[in-house]
Design a protein around this nucleic acid. Sequence first.
DNA 1: ATAACGATTAGCT
DNA 2: GCTAATCGTTATA
Length: 204
Amino acid sequence: MVRAGRVLPRSFFDRDPVEVARDLLGRVVESWTPEGIVAIRLVETEAYAGQDDPASHAWRGPTPRSAVMFGPPGRLYVYFTYGMHHCANVVCGPDNLASAVLMRAGEVVDGVDLARARRRPGAPERALASGPANLAACLGLDTSWTGTDVVVAGSPLRLRAGSPVPDEAVVAGPRVGITRAVERPWRFRVAGNPHVSGPRRAGG
DNA sequence: ATAACGATTAGCT
DNA sequence: GCTAATCGTTATA
């Protein structure tokens, strides 16, 4: 069991998503299920700025899928993609923007056995949560988790303070896997960290 | 009703 | 570097 500090308050998420994405590096996301606990220290995130952002699922206004992004900050938005993967975001402020931060990669710091069981036998430890769909799989997340409030006491998904990453260790670069607004440098990662997503690991 | 595609991943060349 | 896997969401009619 890893001591990861206090649960982040709602005010943490009630900010511009670019700020939140940057600040989320080094923080610890943990899921509590009947199977057990898995905790992951985040090393890679991306910001999505709602209706101001052509790459965001919220760009064209609310749909059944993106509705939660238009709600209050601090809730989970999990979507299903490519017919087989889930990815997890935390909704951010400000209220009118429908913004969110995608949790892209991290280091499993608690519940390694459970995390590996949810992935693939023989997956190297550094690859367990390297990529948004891998990270969501380790935590056992699917679309039924959408709407989960991560700041209420006893939530099955929590974000803890962990240890913030200093500016000199943070690299900002273009977001991955999108076709619009590619130029916005809203992907953040910890420089040189072996747990970031690949194979675009070298990109900037 | 239907078609195109996606905030990905793993495996192979 | 290239691509199959696989299906919900969205746009269009």
